[in-house]
Design a protein around this nucleic acid. Structure first.
Lengths: 343, 343
DNA sequence: CTGAAAGCGCTTACAG
DNA sequence: CTGAAAGCGCTTACAG
């Protein structure tokens, strides 16, 4: 069942069983320290020596033990991506991009889910922080002070959130929101409502601000409804408030809420978009699938994840890439959930 | 920018900065080895000594350095979950359950994505394998030999796949498939088609077998279409083949393919379910959202992920839980994509 | 019950 | 250019 049988007889030597730099040193006739140099500092050794050592290492299929390497250097070559909820479709893209950027730099990405409240999240992070070189915090619910505290110990980059002194990457909402409002106005809408997510949400606040100012710029009436849970259920629950307002179009904080509005509207016999236009944010999987397809403001989250990892890497001192300076933007995806305002 | 400034003067002592067992030993007036015992083997020491040490450790907010601990023990307290494609909605549930079970045992879960072909996957695993205590392989495309080879080095558990000598967890398809066929037959369908996923897919083969035998048991005609990509596009591409057959109901290898069939049917003016009933597998996010809602056979994937991790843990020798022996099953979710067979 | 020592597999000043 | 030594922070036989 367990592998304690095969080498059981001999005094527990070499727990791992994998070849070490000592094996290579022996076969290559050099000191272990020389092996270490050959493998980590190309060009620092006599070319012939280095080549010989590399050949032996390759023959033995040697891979340096990451733990052993981490002890003296303090570098684990591991990054943490912390998300509140893995099932939130928004994090998919982030994971994708972060994974890609990390792998490219030879880093391993640990994805930690913090489920609960900000406190539990802080504890989770505390646990994982000690074994990584840096962290990317996405969809975090932590308080600013907690973020600042952990950022003082390890390089941290935030996604879609800002805290003083901590670098962050957040696609700018303005372009997409502006296009959305323009789209609605051209359809004849003169009163738009915003359905906010959690009041503590940095992202919700930014989206709301962008929407309000885009409407004001066009002298279109804009109302802000009562905040709700950023889920399908949260959107469903908001329908009465929406119909109570006289808005002809409602913009949900995210696609999930917008989906909830659409579903509740259907159940209530309100036709979307004939009687009510609905739009959301994020363009998650499912937004294109539902009927009517959801009009939404999307961002390249994979790129955000990638960018965030590259930034941590740079702050760690593993700066390969020079680029990454173009601004990340949002754009509008028009589908069938928005249409001409009812007359 | 980097933290090389603060302690720059003194010869680089304590790269980490975090308290060590030596700090605790000093403050508690004991030997470091005693600290180690107090913290790892409760009850082995004089109660007063242990209490004193624990108090100091708590006061210093001490957390053992995982790397340092891993070196002598060979235990990293980390598990890897390897998936081919993170954006595949099916893996969501698996991640969820695996994460939960790992966290509960104090283990960290590393999620590795292997994107490409089986070869790249094998390389990815090779890299990550050395720093984990065990692996869970889900949605893997690796060849049996590769699986066997890695399983020889570390405890491995497969999800939805079987290989000789390697433990696996796979919800049994029969109950759900049987209910699906019963459902279709009761709607008057007498000719059902199965749209397979990749020919190499273990899961697709099992689903096909279950469907075929459930149909034969009821003396209902069943046809197997040509295999296709397990994506929405793959389902769309299969529409001609479906209409060419005289089947009145088609069962896709997974929900994505079924969604593709539904969309292509709509585009072709074929009404679902009036003219064609469509069903899938997995009940992914989006299946309930699309119109018509997708009838599908679902399994508790979170439970599968949880079970898989518990099994690795047991094989590692961290067996807490005794349970986990009830069989995992599938069940039918009826929505609007299936209806009476056209007359 | 606890101390002293050796060792896990690396890296990196320090010599030569 | 390369060797010998010390050390990263733990664990664990071995003594006493």
């Amino acid at each position: 069942m367990v592998d304690s049988s095969d080498l059981a007889g001999q005094q527990r030597r070499r727990p791992s069983g994998a070849p070490t730099i000592y094996d290579i040193a022996e076969r290559a006739g050099v000191n272990p320290s020389t092996v270490s140099r050959a493998l980590n500092q190309p060009g620092r050794l006599n070319a012939a020596t280095e080549a010989r050592i590399r050949a032996v290492a390759a023959a033995l299929n040697f891979h340096a033990n990451p733990m052993a390497r981490a002890l003296p250097t303090g570098r684990t070559h591991t990054l943490a991506l912390v998300v509140a909820d893995i099932t939130n479709p928004v994090v998919f893209g982030i994971i994708r991009g972060a994974e890609r950027a990390a792998a490219e730099a030879g880093y391993t990405l640990v994805i930690a889910e913090s489920q609960e409240s900000g406190e539990v999240e802080a504890a989770t992070i505390e646990r994982v922080a000690q074994s990584v070189d840096g962290l990317v915090l996405a969809t975090t619910r932590m308080a600013d002070v907690d973020i600042t505290r952990i950022a003082a110990r390890k390089p941290v980059v935030l996604i879609n959130r800002a805290t003083d002194g901590v670098p962050h990457v957040a696609p700018s909402v303005e372009p997409g929101v502006d296009a959305l409002v323009e789209h609605l106005v051209s359809l004849g809408h003169r009163h738009i409502a915003f359905l906010p997510g959690p009041t503590a949400s940095w992202t919700s606040a930014r989206r709301q601000d962008a929407l309000v100012s885009a409407c004001q710029r066009r002298a279109v009436r804009v109302g802000v409804l009562e905040a709700s849970t950023p889920t399908i259920a949260g959107g469903e629950a908001a329908l009465p408030a929406i119909t109570d307002s006289t808005a002809t179009a409602v913009v949900g904080f995210n696609d999930l809420m917008a989906m909830g509005v659409v579903q509740a509207a259907r159940a209530a016999g309100i036709h979307v978009p004939a009687q009510l236009s609905v739009a959301g944010f994020d363009d998650i999987f499912g937004s294109a699938l539902m009927v009517p397809g959801l009009t939404t403001v999307r961002a390249d989250l994979a790129q955000a994840g990638e960018r965030a990892v590259m930034t941590v890497l740079r702050n760690i001192g593993v700066s390969h890439e020079a680029g990454g300076e173009e601004e990340l933007v949002t754009s509008l995806v028009v589908r069938q959930s928005t249409g001409p305002a009812p007359v």
